[in-house]
């Protein structure tokens, strides 16, 4: 391309009238290594565009998949924490049973479907679930017995 063509394209460029095709021509011209003195001042700009385009992320298939695997594990830990938190509070005092567990305010609580594939992890989860179940079971049966007792005493008063 001759200088007048480039001049024309550059003017169009500054006026935001160039098409993507024309912008590509400009980029090609400035990367050709044969830039006329007249346009030298804009070389750094197109040089910058080209340099930036060569930046790449380190993410690849295997690093991405292992990141997702890690994320899944932490989901289970969050769920475990939620159950444990509730169960632990129940162990201290039933009256504060449903008080919120120390789970980090749910903000990070990730959600997904997860099938446990590690026996140790499965054992931990099962124990937590059993603790949760039995504490609630005990609490509920006590409450029901107490309520039944109240009904009986009310009838006696009649």
């Amino acid at each position: 391309m001759n200088n007048s063509e480039i001049r024309h394209l550059l003017n169009k460029y500054w006026e935001t009238e160039t098409s993507l095709e024309e912008e590509k021509l400009l980029k090609q011209y400035f990367s050709s290594g044969n830039v006329s003195e007249e346009f030298q001042e804009y070389s750094p700009l197109f040089d910058f565009y080209a340099t930036e385009l060569s930046r790449t992320s380190e993410l690849n298939e295997s690093s991405g998949i292992s990141l997702l695997e890690k994320q899944k594990k932490s989901n289970v830990i969050h769920l475990r924490k939620a159950i444990i938190g509730v169960a632990a509070a129940g162990l201290i005092a039933f009256s504060v049973f449903w008080m919120k567990s120390e789970v980090d305010s749910g903000a990070q609580f990730a959600n997904t479907y997860h099938e446990v594939e590690d026996p140790e992890e499965a054992l931990k989860i099962t124990k937590d679930a059993l603790a949760f179940l039995s504490i609630n079971f005990d609490k509920s049966s006590k409450k029901i017995n107490k309520d039944l007792g109240n009904i009986k005493s009310a009838q006696i008063f009649k």
Partner: peptide
Amino acid sequence: DESFSTVYVSPKMFQMVTKV
């Protein structure tokens, strides 16, 4: 559903749990 979490321990996994 993203607002739910599910954890599942399969019968096969329970056979292994009894071993640990």
